[in-house]
Nucleic acid binder design. Structure first.
Lengths: 242, 242
DNA sequence: CGGGCTTTTGACGCCGCTCAAAGATAGTGG
DNA sequence: CCACTATCTTTGAGCGGCGTCAAAAGCCCG
């Protein structure tokens, strides 16, 4: 079952206030947004949007992780995006999306009805500009990902993925000792264009080589950051991925 | 050597006037753009921009085809974007790009110096909105591509690529009889995440099966569109890719 | 006609997928 | 508290698709 809805939080106290689509809004614009927003929650694993269905809402992801995925005729699926807090779902000017959106963890969305939001985009340059920045950032990530999917070996894919998790959980450059693996082996496989068996084997290989260590099955630590970096195949200041 | 520069064409007569970043500009905005633009040309194979180098210009692609590509430490490369006329190079708010841009065919750019262009984006919502639409379209393409790179077989990749060329050269729904292969086998391979040998073998396999036919090495025709579609692995109304 | 490209074709081997089964882990109800 | 089940993960064996290496063939242009 879905987690309980957050009570409507005031925009000025919103945790993603400074990063989401509303980042640059002034008081008046914020008031407008406030009047058209509503929160919705989804439990881990729940579908949020299906490919092709008419889009009633656009939304900002407030908390949790969601994923975008595409599926071939015979069921092979590939994740094509990972949504983190402050990321935006949907787009002005388009009534449908061409991928499924699924809650990876429990998720809270800040939803806006599409029609009024689109009017807002027309009228307030701040929102349009921020939307563009978000889209361009997503493009950068997508392109790093394409390099990974098209050219990296299984080992390099896993190393890149692990390093991405490390970077994302870093606070003030401190190396965290305990890092969460936020998805199942199967989800990681769909993320990296591999099978779940290969994911399992490569993770255990990195462990056996002393590059990473497992405490729990869902948490790991870094033992040898340099080797991890070498294993990604990237050059010195390469790929960022999220 | 580069082809000779076009003489500065008036914006109102520009072939990409209605599709490029300036699509929605009114007379005044167009005049502003006109005052800061200049044309540059590049010959097939020439580099246009290198990854990481400071970006002096942003530009619209006026004619020809250019490609974006990324390279791993050991030289493996992957195309991450294909630029066609009216596509935009560069982005406001960022001084560097994270991929190489290369002319695939002879290319003409309509360049704008970055600083004044960025001011223009701040001031004219029409430009910002159009830029956002272009970015979102690119994102859609990138996501189809990710599915292809991560999950499709060599045969499906080739079939998808060929079908993309067919769609792009269709005029008014007419099936063209002679379609150009605009790149070498090596470029196709870097596009699809394959080797050039595999590209060659799969193209010839499609020919041997009577799905396509070759006249010249650089031109082909469609013999069996249904089989070609079946070979892509997509479901009914799937992937568009450019 | 000759040299440098691109493309084709073949032989071979390996990485990662497939299929299968056993081992962990967590949640559920008695 | 302990079976019992469902889900996730690990591990193994085997195979095949695609990459690698090599060489020949076709094509372009001087």
């Amino acid at each position: 079952m879905p987690p309980p809805s957050l009570n409507a939080v005031r925009c000025s106290e919103c945790p993603i206030r400074h990063r989401a689509v509303c980042a640059r809004c002034d008081e008046d614009e914020l008031a407008l947004l406030e009047s058209m927003k509503s929160y919705r929650s989804f439990a881990a694993g729940e579908p949020i949007l299906w490919r092709g269905e008419p889009l009633e809402f656009v939304a900002s992801l407030v908390s949790g992780v969601a994923s975008l995925s595409k599926t071939l005729e015979d069921g092979r699926t590939q994740m094509v995006g990972l949504l983190l807090p402050s990321d935006f779902i949907g787009r002005p000017g388009r009534a449908r999306i061409d991928f499924d959106v699924t809650a990876t963890t429990d998720v809270t969305l800040c939803c806006f009805r599409r029609a009024p939001f689109e009017r807002l985009v027309e009228d307030t340059p701040h929102v349009a500009q921020r939307l563009m920045e978000l889209a361009l950032d997503e493009l950068d990530v997508a392109r790093d990902w394409m390099l990974l999917l098209g050219r990296k070996t299984a080992r390099e894919k896993i190393a890149t993925f692990v390093l991405m998790l490390v970077r994302r959980s870093q606070i003030d450059g401190q190396m965290p000792t305990r890092i969460a693996l936020p998805m199942t082996r199967d989800q990681i496989a769909n993320f990296l264009g591999l099978t779940l068996e290969t994911v399992s084997r490569q993770l255990n290989a990195l462990k056996k080589e002393g590059v990473i260590s497992f405490t729990d099955r869902r948490y790991f630590g870094i033992e040898d950051l340099a080797s991890l970096h070498d294993a990604t195949g990237d050059d010195a200041d390469g790929g960022v991925l999220v």
